[in-house]
Write a protein that binds this DNA or RNA. Sequence first.
DNA 1: TTGAAAGCGCTAACAG
DNA 2: CTGTTAGCGCTTTCAA
Lengths: 353, 353
Amino acid sequence: MAASDDSIPVESAARQREATPTIRDVARLAEVSIGTASKALNDNGRLSAETRQKVLRVARELGYRPNHLAQSLHRSKSMTVGILTNDSFGRFSFPIVEALEDRLADQRIAVFMCNATDDPERERRHLDQLLGKRIDGLVVTARRSDKRGSIEAYVRGIPVIYVFAQAEDADSLSLVPDDEGGARLAVEHLIKLGRKRIAHLTGPAHFEAVALRHRGYSAALGAAGLAEIPGFFRNGRWSEASGREAVAELFDGAAAPPDALFCGNDMIARGALDALRDRGIKVPEQVAIVGFDNWDVMVTGAQPPLTSIDMNLKALGREAGERLIAMIGGERMTGVRRLPCTLVVRQSSGGAA
Amino acid sequence: MAASDDSIPVESAARQREATPTIRDVARLAEVSIGTASKALNDNGRLSAETRQKVLRVARELGYRPNHLAQSLHRSKSMTVGILTNDSFGRFSFPIVEALEDRLADQRIAVFMCNATDDPERERRHLDQLLGKRIDGLVVTARRSDKRGSIEAYVRGIPVIYVFAQAEDADSLSLVPDDEGGARLAVEHLIKLGRKRIAHLTGPAHFEAVALRHRGYSAALGAAGLAEIPGFFRNGRWSEASGREAVAELFDGAAAPPDALFCGNDMIARGALDALRDRGIKVPEQVAIVGFDNWDVMVTGAQPPLTSIDMNLKALGREAGERLIAMIGGERMTGVRRLPCTLVVRQSSGGAA
DNA sequence: TTGAAAGCGCTAACAG
DNA sequence: CTGTTAGCGCTTTCAA
């Protein structure tokens, strides 16, 4: 494209004011009307192949790029969704958000990321921003110990999905992992391996997930005809230290310690594992361990590697994307869907193939 | 606001077609011209307090929300930036992205999140999306072992910043942690504590960070008049297993093992720590350990807790936001800025206060 | 102080 | 097959 400055006035003009070329520029240079150019570029309407080619060529040469802002204004679809996270659990939201973004990108939907940090004021401001940008849908994410107040009312008109978070409002859609089922999976696995004295070391009682997993634990024990042993269910913190403490209390000087530990997350499991090793108790020979989260760095770094429950966060994110697209398309969905967890067997439970 | 359906036709009309009210609706209902309404809402132009109040009141009642799309179209500023990440290091990008989003939100700039997963094709598609949406700036992030090709040429016209990633192109701006300085900090700390046989266990040689930290390690030793001991610099993987292996090789049957380990990340450090404990070697009494990344779950879960180098990723993200805003404002910046790392002392180095 | 009107860049009828 | 035109929702001169 060796053109002198005045032979293609429009182009040079565009260059001069450093502005992105518009469809006008393309039309002028291709010597067609602006409407024709639009048809060519959007590949609709009836047009001679020749004209179409010419327009497309000019557009390419000019580096023309349709202005989505203008398009959205017209179509009243922004091809944009917002995602509101609370950072407290970055490690959980990331895979979800990633998978969601991925799924949405397939439909050429872009994602606005907003982090509210559990601050209602910030949340409010972000929401204003997003609504101002005319997002087509909203995803709210981040596990919290309490159910979160619904924001449906505020965003009335566009679909909202809660992921890894549960709204109070019954006619919104929430997508969460099946905590109870996951716990059952873990405990059934241990029972199948012949363990009979299974303790559950978990997080603070005010987390709903803690309650649900407790229920799963009890259910699995009950189904196998095993009684829950007093003191074998322990609330604590989500940390390695908490796991170590629990082991100290359960094993030091106890007549009949557990022969298996089902832990509320991998950090607790890891702490427990270390504490057992310090005491010369063999894992999995004497005590089998199953964690929760299947967090690779924790799980593969441990010795022996940890058997754990995977919440399939990516699947959760993908599913959320899928549903959001459907809802944007007009479908209506409500309620709480619990997606299955998966058991990933490694050496710590002694159940590896 | 108890109005019968026909008393406020505009509003009910808006409700009926479920459309967000526009400035027209506000103007009509407030019985002013659309231009006047605009002035009132944007608080510019001269206007009687009375009219302004009336417009604002109507807007509030109607739930009016300015359409940023239309505003942007007019102002040719979208108040929007894109961020392009490569997921390989989710754990690193997250704090950066978070801080960046935070800083930008202060200026009411929203962030489009795109994940390219190191796939040039996806990257290209995302870039097209972003440019179509007329982003005012772009941040590219994610550590890679190799320098990344510049995308400046492609996005010509809007400012680009590389964070935690370094562009080949010399006239773009890159923000990275000062790996060399961080390493120096770690080694100086160990030297100050009287250690003389300091080994460096790190990641694969093809990472630039590995080379830089090696340089910092050597520099600190040299400055203290300590010779580098053959075999004490070890490339490996970024994993706990790698740390354990290194300890096996350095300590088992060696006449003169290290008295300190500076590790390329916290996982290596943690593996080394565990391996030492298995051998009955006391940390920090016999061997002091310093990690890198200051990754809380790793660092606080370890026993004893790990002294580590913090790359201040949040600061990096904030700084990136700051600079991007400046660049959007017209400032021009190029080159590679290295932001300082920080030493965080805990028990594993024996240097706690 | 307020209103009217010309666009921002694009699409979709509707004419020609 | 192609051109003209009326907006999408908003801001900003320029008149009144």
